[in-house]
Structure formats: C-alpha cells, structure tokens
C-alpha cells in the first residue's frame, strides 16, 4: 500500500479526514488498483471485527464480587499447596490424581512384597555367607526345607520373635 493511503488509513476508516485529505486519498485509490484492493480487504476485515460488538452492554449477575473473592481464596489455598499446581483444573482432575497416586502406592508396595518373598536369591546369598554355612545343616533336595533352615539360622540368633 502506498504511503499516501497507509498514513491516513485509520482516519479514512473512521471518517475523520478533512475534506481535502479525503479527496487526496480517494483520488489515489481511483488510480491505484493495488491500494484499492488492500483498502477493500481492510474494510472487509473491519466489518467482520465489528461483529464482536455487543448489541447491549453486559454485566455479571449480582454478588459477583463475593464469587470473585471465593475464587481468590481457593486460589490462595491452592498456592499454599504448590504440589497441586501439578494438577491444575477442576476438582475431578485432582480426585483422579489422588486416585492415581494411591494406586501407584499400592502397586509399589505389592511389588515390594513380591520381591521380599522371592526365595532363590535369598538362599544363594545365605549359602555364600561362611558364618551361616557353618550353622546350617546340610542341604537337601527339598527347597522349602532348606529355606526354613536358613531362615532359622539367621533370624533366631538375632532375637527375633519369628517362631513361625
């Protein structure tokens, strides 16, 4: 767009150009197809933007300040617990996050329990320990019996109540 039009475009659109200035712009537009096209595009987009103008001004329902205040307070509470900032959103999201964390904790403890009851590594480690080997009766082919002997050899000397 040529400067003669570009520099005056806002006033031209607003209709606030002086008659002489307006004639100058219009005369240029008549002779310049490029500026005319651009001006048409600007006028069109301007018309669309005006679709956002409200027919009547709007206002919130009474009690708006109280509702804002409530929101501010819950935001303050949220900020006091920054952990929850990981889960922005409505209460449902937070409840889901809670449920997920609980599930992870439960799964974690389940896996931990499984690892503790795994017999093979325990027996192998114990068999490698010289002190234990000295106090442990000879191994038999019965794995369960071996495991019990090993456990007795370790646990009972420590004064544990593990009599089972």
């Amino acid at each position: 767009m040529h400067k003669v039009v570009q520099s005056q475009i806002e006033a031209y659109l607003d209709g606030t150009l002086l008659p002489l200035e307006r004639r100058e712009v219009e005369s240029h537009l008549r002779g310049c197809a490029e500026c005319r096209r651009e001006m048409e595009a600007v006028e069109q987009t301007r018309g669309w933007l005006r679709l956002l103008v409200l027919e009547e001004p709007q206002a919130p329902a009474p009690g708006f300040y109280a509702r804002v205040r409530q929101r501010v307070e819950s935001e303050e509470a949220r900020r006091a617990w920054p952990f929850w900032q990981l889960f922005p959103g409505p209460t449902v999201t937070r409840q889901l996050a809670y449920a997920l964390i609980m599930l992870l904790v439960l799964l974690g403890s389940y896996v931990f329990t499984l690892e503790q009851t795994e017999p093979v590594p325990a027996v192998e480690v114990m068999l490698d320990a010289p002190v234990i080997r000295a106090e442990t009766p000879p191994l038999t082919s019965d794995t369960q019996a071996n495991r019990e002997r090993v456990m007795r050899a370790i646990v009972l000397p420590l004064g544990s109540t593990a009599g089972d």
């Binding site: 709007q58 206002a59 300040y65 804002v68």
Partner: peptide
C-alpha cells in the same frame, strides 16, 4: 472489581 466488572464481562461476552 466494581469499576471494571461490566467492561470485563462485556469484552468476554463479545468474544
């Protein structure tokens, strides 16, 4: 809030 609530509400409603 009292001074700008109408304006804010109108802008939002326009969009």
């Amino acid at each position: 809030v009292a001074r700008y609530q109408g304006k804010v509400f109108s802008i939002i409603h326009g969009i």
